[in-house]
Amino acid sequence: MRGMLLVARRDLAGYLNSLWGYAVIAAVLVVDGLLFNAFALGSQPKLSSKVVEEFFYFSFGTTVVASILLTMRSVAEERQTGTIVLLDSSPLSDWQLIGGKYLSALLMIAAMVLCTMYMPALVFVNGKVSYGHIAAGYLGLLLVGSSVAAIGTFASAVSRSQLVAGFASVVITVALLVMWLLAKVAEPPLVDVFSYLSLFDRHYRSFMRGQINTEDVAFYLSISFVFLLLASRFMAARRWR
């Protein structure tokens, strides 16, 4: 655990010492703010819960994009600059290395998501919406961020360059996003598999509405775990190739 925290601490400092981390967060806040004004608030009167629901709807997209942008550099950059040798020759296990990278990205995503909180807070102050709805929505965003961060960390671990890592993350994430389309045309039992793997349609909508289903929480946590496991296994396998 200590090794993981050490890697996370350095990576977090790396995000904060470079323009990249700030640029991604700033871009997300600008886009979220514009979408909040243009679509969530809109020009027509709406229920407060509907406004918050729409806020979490488009925040899903910005969180996914930001998670990819933040994680595409994590391991690939170490490989490009040669600093991966320092980590590889240390007593850190591959799991600690990958876990640390993921943790730092997750903390950045959490900080970014928390920065958007002023928008639902405005609705809370001026309208009528429950704490629970906002909390459930943010839990959903964090879980989505966690899953995509794990996908991005995996893509970064298997790629030689950050661009390739970003592209691989996009491909995997989009594949999981469009699973619901495949589910529509697939035959049983594949229809259940595709439907279950849908990153947005099956598992996120309940969070938008303020509901927390353990099945959805378990889905996002298992996606995170599987991709982190794959990343650490890949890192271990490199030593044998």
Partner: peptide
């Protein structure tokens, strides 16, 4: 281990880097 190209985090200060590496190495 020192490879031919030293693996250094360029944005860190020397002392700060060595403190971190020492802890990473156990």
């Amino acid at each position: 281990f020192l490879p031919e190209d030293p693996p250094l985090y360029r944005e860190m200060r020397v002392v700060e880097f060595l403190r971190w590496v020492g802890q990473v190495k156990g």
